[in-house]
Design a protein around this nucleic acid. Structure first.
Lengths: 254, 254
DNA sequence: CGGGTGTTTGACATTGCTCAACATACGTGG
DNA sequence: CCACGTATGTTGAGCAATGTCAAACACCCG
C-alpha cells in the first residue's frame, strides 16, 4: 500500500537526497536511473560519533553511502600522529576504494552520529550494468574526490598555514553547497580544531591562532559550529581558490 | 612480413612491457587480454624532457601510457611555487583522470625524454568491453595510484623531512621493482634535488641537507642518478614503510 | 673557454611546534 | 543544586625544524 502510494512521487523524493543532487550535477539522470539509485538504499544503518566504521588493514568490508552526518578517513602513524585524508559529507561514498583493493588502507570515523546505507560490490556492479550512465556519474564523482585529495596535497605541501586553512574552508563550503548544505554565506561545521589540525597537518594550537588571524582580518569566522564567510571575495583571492573542478552550473552530460 | 614473424612471439614480447608486468601483478592476464592490451599501443609518440605534455586547464586532451622515461604531474601556484603530485614511471597512465573530467586540473611534464602511446577514451572503453578483466586490472591500478597519492599526502602532512624523504624513496623503489626497474638494492633515478623538493614540499636546500644526513647515517645514498639502499631494513623501519598496497607476490585475482 | 644546470655549505630569518596554564561549556553523579 | 571530570578553545614563551639568501663548486656541452 505504502509502496504504491509512493511510486509516483519517487522522482520528487529523490530530488532531495544529497547523492542525487551531487550526481545530478555531473550527469542528467532519468527516472529509471533515479529508481535504480533509490534501490541501492536498502540496508540502512546508523553509527555513533567516534567509533570507527572501518579499520586500517581490515579485509573486505562493505562500502557505504553517507546519508546524514559527517565522517573522516584518516591514517594513524606509529608515533600516534594522525593525518586526516578527507572529510565525507552527505552524498559521499565511504570506503569505495577499499572495496576494490579488498583491503582498507585507512580508517573511517564518524565525526557526528551518521546515517548510511550499506552497499556491496555486487549491488553496485548490478546497478552499473543496468544503467551505464549511472556508472559514468559515479566514476566522475570518484574522480572529483580524487581531484580534491590532490588539492588537499597542494594545500599541505605548498600553502602557508593561513592560506591552507582558507582554501580548505572554501573547498568544504563548495562541496556542501553542491548538496544543499552550504552557500557563499557559510555553513554549519561540526569539526573541532583538533580535527582541522589533523587534516591540515598543523598543531591544534596553531589552528587556533590561524583562525584568529583570519577572523581578525575579516575574511572568515569559525565559531560555535558555524563557518561564516565574512568576505567571500577577499577570501577566495587570499586562498587562490579556483573551484573549476567543483563548479558546475548544470550537468556536464545531458 | 615482420608482423607475421612477430606474431607467435607476442606473448613473450608482452611479458616484458612495464604495463603488462604491472597489471599482471593485479590480475592474471590471458593471451586474449594480452593481445587486446597490445592493440592499444597504436599511436606511439615521443616527447622531449621539460616540455609540458598537458597544461593545467587544457580541455579534452588524450591520455597516454608511459613506455619509457619518467614524467611528473604537478600544479603551479600563482606565486610560482609548484607542488609535484606524483611521478610517473614506465607502465603508468598519464592523464587518465583528466580524460574523464574533460579538463586537466594539473600539468604533466616529461622529466626525461619519454616514449608514450596515445590512448583515446574510445580505445579504452572498447578494450574494456572486450575484456572485463582488463577493466578490473586498470581500475585496480588506478586505485593503487590513488592510494599512493594518499600516502604522499601523509608524507607531507605528518612526517618530518628525513622520514618523508626515506618513505618516498622506498615507495618509488617498490613501484620500480614492480615493473622490473629496481630492487631492494636501489634504482636508477633521474630526479634532481629541485624535483624532489617540489614533490616533498621542502626547499631544495633542505633536500640536500636531508640527503646528506640519510647518507651519513648509512641508510640510503642518492648520488649520480642512482639511489642505493645501504640498509634496506633500517630504512624501512626509520620511515615506517608499509608496502601493503604495493606488495604482491602474485596476482590478486586468478 | 663560457654559460647553464645542479649540488653543497654557511649564516640568518621565520614558521609553526611544544609545553604549560587557564577558560569555557557540558554532562554526570552525588 | 553543586562538584567534578572531560573535551574543547585560547593565549603566552621558548625552541626546533625548515626556509631564504648568498656564495662557491662541479660538471657537461657547445
Amino acid at each position: 500500500m505504502l509502496g504504491v502510494w509512493l511510486a509516483p512521487k519517487i522522482g520528487q523524493r529523490l530530488e532531495k537526497t544529497p547523492l542525487v543532487r551531487k550526481l545530478g550535477a555531473f550527469v542528467a539522470l532519468s527516472g529509471t536511473e533515479l529508481s535504480v539509485l533509490d534501490a541501492l538504499h536498502k540496508r540502512r544503518r546508523t553509527f555513533v560519533a567516534g567509533r570507527d566504521l572501518v579499520h586500517q588493514g581490515q579485509l573486505d568490508q562493505a562500502a557505504y553511502i553517507l546519508i546524514s552526518g559527517w565522517a573522516c578517513s584518516y591514517k594513524i602513524l606509529e608515533d600516534g600522529q594522525r593525518q586526516i585524508v578527507d572529510f565525507q559529507i552527505p552524498g559521499d561514498f565511504l570506503g569505495l576504494r577499499s572495496v576494490l583493493l579488498h583491503m582498507s588502507d585507512h580508517s573511517i570515523e564518524p565525526i557526528t552520529d551518521i546515517e548510511v546505507t550499506e552497499v556491496t560490490v555486487a549491488d553496485l556492479l548490478d546497478a552499473f550494468s543496468q544503467t551505464p550512465r549511472l556508472a559514468t556519474a559515479v566514476f566522475w564523482a570518484a574522480s572529483r574526490d580524487e581531484a580534491m585529495v590532490v588539492e588537499h596535497l597542494i594545500d599541505i605541501g605548498r600553502r602557508a598555514a593561513a592560506e591552507r586553512m582558507a582554501h580548505f574552508l572554501l573547498e568544504l563550503g563548495a562541496r556542501l553547497s553542491l548538496v544543499g548544505l552550504g552557500s557563499k554565506a557559510g555553513f554549519a561545521c561540526p569539526l573541532s580544531q583538533y580535527l582541522l589540525a589533523d587534516a591540515l597537518g598543523l598543531s591544534a594550537v596553531h589552528v587556533n591562532r590561524v583562525l584568529r588571524t583570519l577572523r581578525e582580518s575579516g575574511m572568515v569566522t569559525f565559531r560555535d559550529g558555524f563557518v561564516t564567510f565574512d568576505s567571500y571575495s577577499r577570501l577566495t583571492e587570499f586562498a587562490e581558490f579556483d573551484p573549476v573542478y567543483l563548479d558546475h552550473t548544470g550537468p556536464l552530460l545531458r
